[in-house]
Computed example of a mutant assay.
Amino acid sequence: MSFSTTPAVLILEDGRTFSGSAYGSVGETTGEAVFVTAMTGYQETLTDPSYHRQIIIQAAPHIGNTGVNRTDDESGRIWAAGYVVRDASRISSNWRSEGDLADWLSESGIVGISDVDTRALTRHLRDKGAMRMGIFSGPAAEAPVDELLARVQAAPEMAGANLVDEVTTSQTRLIPAEGQKRFSVAAVDLGIKSMTPERMAERGIDVHLVPASITLEELQTLGVDGVFFSNGPGDPAAADDQVELLRGVLDARLPFFGICFGNQLLGRALGFGTYKLPFGHRGINVPVMDRTTDKVEITSQNHGFAVDAPLEGETTAPHSPDYGRVIVSHVCLNDDVVEGLACLDIPAFSVQFHPEAAAGPHDSSYLFDRFIDLMTASQADSAAQA
């Protein structure tokens, strides 16, 4: 790669400014500033649709040393609006590498900046909270700072943003089970990562990947044994159509499993509220306790919103008593944020993190097996009632 010396500037919406060098494409971009604490997995991060309209700040100082490859992509493109690193690797050195990160960013039109004090930037966001940000390089960086700041402040905010339709699949497709088929699941694509259906397929599940706009009637014609809601970008308070779909799933007593955005939508479907976190959880090192087992797992996370549900005891679902009792099944050990919900009287549960572990630890892979147990129990109940 050719190492850029093109000047670049980063401007936060509160006016704080950082100077650096262009990294990737030269130009300008705006989005919500989010920091990621993971030391590895930058390729999976960049291709995660949950980062749509966000500018990623890598807290780890050295980025790009293992290059990029086609295998590790979690979708068909980079979804991040921009990229911020401190020390961009000058070489790619890995036996799996098929290219250079900076070249990939440039070819994908992703405007980035390097040589930035990402520690200071991360501390600023932790102190002041999430905010919009802009990166300007080349001729774009030559404009007066107050003009660039105005562009940042004019960018849309994440609160209230409905982005699901911008990232979902356009048509239903099947990811077939590996080996003998055990179950069939409809996975509603709210911004799904490619490893997620693979984790289900390797457990003998036929995965019907369906658009976020699917109706309950269309979903039921698939004849599935369960329904899965994926991760995704935007504000869960704006996803009313998907909440109504999920309530139909719960009313039909179809076994349900949701992750990340899917966890927030289950919270809304049950009648709980959601709220925006000060700076979110993004990384592959977030400690969570599974209260059903008292085990602590290190999790992969990417979310800026959370469910507002009582942490202690059982609660009757506020939306409808027909949904019965609900507990907070998982909690974050850093800040007591709700990390999972479990329904005790209907077959539904969810978690706020990413059990597919791409990239990330594999502590939470048992959750796919828990989904299988839920579908097994549901089939047994149906057989007993027949």
Results as ranks from 00 to 15, higher is better:
residue 176 P to C: 03
residue 176 P to F: 02
residue 176 P to T: 04
residue 177 A to H: 01
residue 179 G to T: 03
residue 182 R to D: 00
residue 184 S to G: 13
residue 185 V to G: 00
residue 190 L to Y: 05
residue 193 K to T: 11
residue 202 E to G: 07
residue 202 E to K: 14
residue 203 R to S: 04
residue 204 G to C: 15
residue 205 I to Q: 09
residue 206 D to W: 00
residue 207 V to W: 01
residue 211 P to S: 03
residue 212 A to H: 13
residue 216 L to G: 03
residue 217 E to M: 02
residue 222 L to N: 13
residue 222 L to D: 07
residue 223 G to L: 08
residue 223 G to D: 02
residue 223 G to N: 05
residue 225 D to H: 01
residue 227 V to Y: 01
residue 229 F to G: 07
residue 230 S to A: 11
residue 231 N to C: 11
residue 231 N to V: 07
residue 232 G to S: 05
residue 234 G to F: 08
residue 234 G to T: 14
residue 237 A to M: 06
residue 239 A to V: 15
residue 240 D to V: 13
residue 240 D to Q: 12
residue 241 D to Y: 05
residue 242 Q to V: 13
residue 242 Q to R: 09
residue 242 Q to M: 13
residue 243 V to D: 03
residue 245 L to V: 10
residue 250 L to A: 04
residue 251 D to N: 15
residue 256 F to H: 11
residue 259 I to F: 08
residue 259 I to M: 10
residue 261 F to G: 05
residue 262 G to R: 09
residue 264 Q to P: 11
residue 268 R to M: 09
residue 268 R to P: 10
residue 272 F to L: 04
residue 273 G to W: 08
residue 273 G to S: 14
residue 275 Y to R: 12
residue 276 K to E: 13
residue 276 K to F: 11
residue 277 L to R: 11
residue 278 P to L: 11
residue 279 F to I: 05
residue 280 G to V: 03
residue 280 G to D: 04
residue 280 G to H: 01
residue 282 R to E: 02
residue 283 G to P: 01
